[in-house]
Nucleic acid binder design. Structure first.
Lengths: 207, 207, 207, 207
DNA sequence: AATGAATGAGTTTTCATTCAT
DNA sequence: AATGAATGAAAACTCATTCAT
């Protein structure tokens, strides 16, 4: 009844513990997937007891859902920032760069998202079909506009976006493979990737 | 001991049932991940009883491992086929096309692989570090050669390969998202993707 | 229906296979106990398939019971041979020697028996309460007679028999411990034991 | 992880339940052997639910191992007490008596040990080869000394110790048989055994 | 006789969740 | 807020036994 999650006023401690748990859960879920993660693992990672963790969240699913909710905001921010009034190629390349920086700085978020989509997005299909699709449609329209006005080469805006997503997220989601394949060269993988992707998308879009 | 899996001579039934199980397991593992899948699910999918399934495979892990073993062969075949003596751009575009066809025709294999890498490749790290890396190194050398001889534009062969992998596999691994975002346009997603990717990689590689 | 075990006429092959199975089962049961042994293990040891083994014996219990049945005959033979008309001390010492030889030559039989008694003799209580007790009572009477006629020192015949059983069987049942404790001296353990036990029972019985 | 068994500070309940479980497990393991015992049986005997029992011990083997660990201390105590400076025959007879009392008062411990050795001591071979052998070697030296100084008759100290172990433990390990054979006389079996064994070892050792 | 195939009934263990304090 | 204790439901095997050929 008096669950922390339910009360509207949060104490500082409640907020801190909630964050602590979410951070731990992100780490665990991103590595082992939802079913592969146990509450024990998350509690251990957070330095809490299992029942104490469940004092802050109703159940395992609630933690996961909260993570996914927040995720989408962060996730869509770089695309949000794509400015209709900016210089088209600059805007798109900046978007590529931001996405790649996210892969570098938030790989666990990327993997959490990948895990979820891979399994058929059982928990965030609504968000995909709602906010995400809406935003993509909106930005696709802008890109199509640029294309029609010959500011960039003709390109299918949706598949362009998919290419940006996949190439950048690859460095987070498939990092294990990337690092092994690159061997010692892996140290500079993000810089090398930035150069490569900038080159690739520049050539693609130059009218 | 006297497990079917251990005997050297396989009867027809053994071969059939083994295939049946692997097919069912691929479906289940690709959808729910290793930990998220149960032997019961796989047995159900295969139309067998659980103990009967375990008559053919020693345990859950053995099924998964067998799938991954086979997978790598199929997985590397398109890259294997990249011919040093072919016309460079044609060869690379053909590789893109083959990879995209695999994403279309074997999406479950793609997701099985993605699931495994996402979790840190606990079960196939050896294969990644061994055969896969060896093959990539070999083909990267070829691509670098083409590049140095100006047959294709200068390009980092490793990151080129990553881009090909990620953009094509995206249509299998993130199909849920792709389909939702494209809505009715999803019907032609593979053809549209082929056009888009061919365009993109052509522009990237043209000297 | 046409079970081999049920038919009265046995072919040579049937007899041979039956023996083969019993030998294998003795080995396995003696080492792992009844519950710790599996039909697979026994079949493996015998070089037969599981169903083939069960063609000769109705079930696991039947094999075990048959072993125990036979065992008792062998087991009681040395005591049977104790001759009322022999020289008392000689007779008893000869009995000790025969028992020790059995521990040396048939350790698996000894352990099978020990396992069974340890668990409360669920399967051979009848044999213990019947033939075994009858025989012991009979021989105890003889020993008591010798004792009363001063041919041997006064001794409780039952506890004498228990002492003979325990000291000799110890070398089979606790062989693991005996061998470890004796270390290199273990090689001569049966000869040393013979000397020691002969000495001990001689001193005990000398009037 | 957060298993009760792993935490260092034990609450009262933890200590009590742990004892409760070990007592129950001793009863069950001693009767049915390791493989013949189920966690269900032990939980039932202890009046706990199966998962609750597994809250205190990681698994079946952990319970068994703990029992065996403790056992050895108890088991070796009587031999430990054999005093080099005492009167030799008195010391050895006192040892016989203590061992017989243990067979009477702790028959389940005796059977647990016997079960383990019978199976080849898979779980306590180290303890046998280590502490047990060390102690036996030490005491054998003392006995040999007594023997050489003619304080007791010449005797192989190792085989003497085996005789003491086997004759006394027999009343615990083979109690089923002993009781059936003795019939009504079984009531006084430990007193009769004490008299018999005292007599036997006295005669053996008197110089 | 012999064996590949199949299964029901356990048995061990895991784990999310709840209870009591 | 926090935690030790407890549990039901599931999941991964195991194994004696039967079936079909």
């Amino acid at each position: 009844m008096a669950r922390a999650a339910a009360s509207k006023t949060r104490t500082r401690i409640q907020r801190e513990k909630t964050e602590l748990i979410l951070t731990a859960a992100l780490e665990v879920f991103a590595t082992y997937g939802y079913r592969g993660s146990t509450i024990d693992q998350i509690a251990g990672q957070a330095g809490l007891s299992k029942p104490n963790l469940l004092y802050y969240f109703d159940n395992k699913d609630a933690i996961h859902s909260r993570l996914l909710e927040r995720l989408l905001e962060t996730w869509l921010a770089p695309l949000h920032a794509l400015d209709e009034n900016g210089e088209p190629i600059t805007e798109i390349l900046a978007y590529v760069t931001r996405k790649l920086e996210m892969a570098r700085d938030f790989p666990r978020e990327s993997r959490l998202f990948a895990n979820e989509i891979l399994q058929g997005a059982p928990r965030i299909l609504d968000q995909i079909a709602g906010p995400l699709k809406t935003l993509v449609d909106e930005k696709a329209l802008i890109i199509r506009g640029w294309s029609q006005q010959n500011q960039i080469a003709p390109v299918d805006p949706y598949h362009l976006i998919f290419s940006i997503w996949s190439t950048t997220q690859h460095y987070a989601d498939f990092d294990t493979q990337v690092s092994v394949v690159l061997g010692p060269r892996a140290a500079t993988r993000f810089d090398d990737a930035a150069r490569h992707l900038t080159d690739m998308f520049t050539k693609l879009l130059r009218p």
